[in-house]
Design a binder for these strands. Sequence first.
DNA 1: CGTTGACTTGAACGATATCAAACAGGGTGG
DNA 2: CCACCCTGTTTGATATCGTTCAAGTCAACG
Lengths: 238, 238
Amino acid sequence: MVGQIIRCDSCAVRHRSVCSALTRPEIERLNGMAHAKLLPPGAVIMRDNEKSSYFANIISGVVKLTKSLGDGRQQIVGLQFASDFLGRPFRANSPYNAEAVTDVHLCTFETQQFEKLAKEFQDLEHRLFEHTLDELDAAQEWMLLLGRKSAEEKVASFLVMVARRMQSVGCHAAGHVTRFELPLSRAEIADFLGLTIETVSRQFTRLKNDGHIAIEGARTVVVQDMDRLRNISESVDG
Amino acid sequence: MVGQIIRCDSCAVRHRSVCSALTRPEIERLNGMAHAKLLPPGAVIMRDNEKSSYFANIISGVVKLTKSLGDGRQQIVGLQFASDFLGRPFRANSPYNAEAVTDVHLCTFETQQFEKLAKEFQDLEHRLFEHTLDELDAAQEWMLLLGRKSAEEKVASFLVMVARRMQSVGCHAAGHVTRFELPLSRAEIADFLGLTIETVSRQFTRLKNDGHIAIEGARTVVVQDMDRLRNISESVDG
DNA sequence: CGTTGACTTGAACGATATCAAACAGGGTGG
DNA sequence: CCACCCTGTTTGATATCGTTCAAGTCAACG
């Protein structure tokens, strides 16, 4: 699980992650403090209110960030994909649980070393800042969804978001059809949208019956018309 | 409305705002580029998706950040109080509307000048970063509320949050009683909690009938037992 | 006073939750 | 290879919470 030293040169997200802020000599330095980690689905990466000993870039896979109420109700407050950064710099404790959703490939850095590096190279801290701003944008967009959208709009929004962030497997050139795998189970989608499993399922079959999507074995979705789906997600018309 | 040059020395939030990161010579420089603004309730400060020409520290008052759907449904995605910072550094357009809720006293900075200053003084950018992290924490906490809490829990959470951020007017020393003015109307509270005006009103009278709070003329609330209210807001018990 | 706007209260409705059962696919042991 | 279970998903029936629609109250103000 805890792997060997990373080679930044051959890193899949070298130019998309926070590392892209670093110059040649700086990346060498980072190289020396990076460790690979391969986690199975369900593996806990960070725990709410507890100190985490490392930060990480996601090389591949999907990570969910969750918060819970005392009685077990849960809410996913963020989904992180390849090239995203995990962990709160300059904070003692994690404000949420982080858990691998798929197989996840991480590139980890010991917190103190990394924060020191961030202080030293302003561009790195700036990149972290930019990433945090993106997270804030996403969070506030999701607040609008959670507070004001109907179940159908929520599910449509979710599909649009996933389609945007997952690599599309189907024929992209041939037109507007897009096929992709859902990284989340129905239960996780429910936790993301503030709904129950049953309601999520019903909305999927509704979208299917209305001809907006096709479903292949619960996890694969084919969007017939992405613009139409986007309209549903924002309730542009009936 | 657009006022004169600010005197940082006598500023009420000098040591709590992002300015606290600045040393003597730096603050002098900021002093030169600051302009006071006094806005009435309802005044629009920034508009979703539009460029804003200035950043601002809130000297006094409350500002709401909102996002809307095409058909008018609205969600408050952030509340900003005295010493908070307004505006998204390093972003072309505002991701939300910002509107004065009360009379608001702002200390504004022209965007380009200010971003230049942030680039120059790393501590200032770092302070902005910290503030953004706080905003993200608040946003994710609110996602849990919007997605998973009942109407009663939402209203209780709102009261706890306001009590924490507004200056308490009542007797604080005498025990657990706390009296404060709500900065938001029922309609605004509804937009903040993802509820309707009617539901908010009903939950207020419920909390009142159950003896958890007293209400004086719609805008003033007296919390009888803050811990009890906090328990309701997190559903610690029945 | 009469009007206005913010808030509260009531009754009926509807969207989503809850409870319960059926279904489907994948893995295991016989 | 099949029967069986296990888990995730779908579907159905009913309940509930919050919304919607409609009055009604109250204080501020002209």
